[in-house]
Computed example of a mutant assay.
Amino acid sequence: MILNEQYHELAFYTLSLGDKQFIHQHLVDAYSAQMATNTTKPITILFALAGLYLMVEKDYTGKQVQLAHIQMAKRYSTPINIALPKERGSLTISDVLAIAPGKDRDAMIVQWCVSVWAAYKQVHPIIIETTHQSLGRVL
């Protein structure tokens, strides 16, 4: 299965949950950060990494990340170029889809996010600082 099909399959799954936590946002952020290329818009990479930071280190739900993205968009002005690491995490969307739908798959989405966020460790300080500035507060 090609990656685009995998993304759509997992997106259908997460959107069908109708959960208040909105785990779908975490899928979007992990996939966007992991699949970014040199032609990906800087704001896409920044927001994906900000979402992963908020989820992994600040325990934000997907809904809270979504609301933070909305607030960040209001204050976002200068794009920052983020160096893309060669390796983008030990887990991939294929690993998530290999798990049967349910709590175990949901847990694997979280592990995937942790894996992708860790792969970008060299840019953590700038992502954290930019996220705090964009949200207008210390988290």
Rank of each mutant, 00 (worst) to 15 (best):
T37K: 11
Q71G: 00
S94Q: 13
K103V: 10
L27N: 05
T40D: 07
N81G: 06
R88W: 02
N81H: 12
K63S: 09
C113T: 13
I126W: 01
D104E: 15
S115R: 02
T40R: 10
Y13I: 05
A36R: 08
L46Y: 10
I127D: 08
A98Q: 08
R75F: 05
S90Y: 11
T39F: 07
A68K: 00
L84H: 05
Y76D: 01
T37F: 10
M35C: 14
T40L: 12
I82Q: 06
L46I: 03
P79C: 05
R105T: 06
I109Q: 06
G89S: 12
H26V: 15
S90E: 14
G102W: 09
E87P: 00
F22I: 07
E87K: 14
H69R: 08
T37Q: 07
M35P: 03
V65I: 15
K86P: 00
C113N: 13
S90K: 12
A50G: 14
N81W: 05
D29Y: 05
Y53E: 12
I128D: 07
L91P: 01
T37I: 12
Y120V: 09
I82N: 04
Y120I: 08
A83C: 08
H69D: 01
D59T: 13
D104G: 04
Q25P: 00
I126R: 07
D104S: 12
K86M: 04
N38Y: 14
D104Y: 05
Y31F: 15
Q25T: 08
A118V: 06
V116S: 02
